[in-house]
Amino acid sequence: MSVLHIINKSPFEKNSLDTCLRLAKKGSAILLIEDAIYAAQKNTAVADKIIAAVARHSVFALAPDLDARGIDESTVVDGISLVDYEGFVRLATEYHAVQSWL
């Protein structure tokens, strides 16, 4: 398996998402956690990037971080899978390496 990319910064504050999308190979996975979950919503300025990413990657978002920030699951871009902490751990073990974009 290839790399699991983890992003934890808001796409409106940091360029981590852009850099990750520029470098992540097709077929690698992307997991949005903490403030990066704001990137998972529909109708944002970065939604087109996420929609494009879903076609190339398995994209996940950490559900407890959505809940904590009042982001309703129905507003999440189609194709993004929500995971709980157990799913997070499972992803980390399934992939060959983890790249946490700071």
């Binding site: 290839s2 520029r22 470098l23 190979k25 390496a97 790249q99």
Partner: peptide, 18 residues
């Protein structure tokens, strides 16, 4: 290029970020 660097990242066992 981003493309080449993406390949390099994909081949790693351990990645540290700073």
């Amino acid at each position: 290029s981003s493309e080449e660097l993406g390949d390099i990242i994909d081949k790693q066992d351990i990645i540290f970020n700073f």
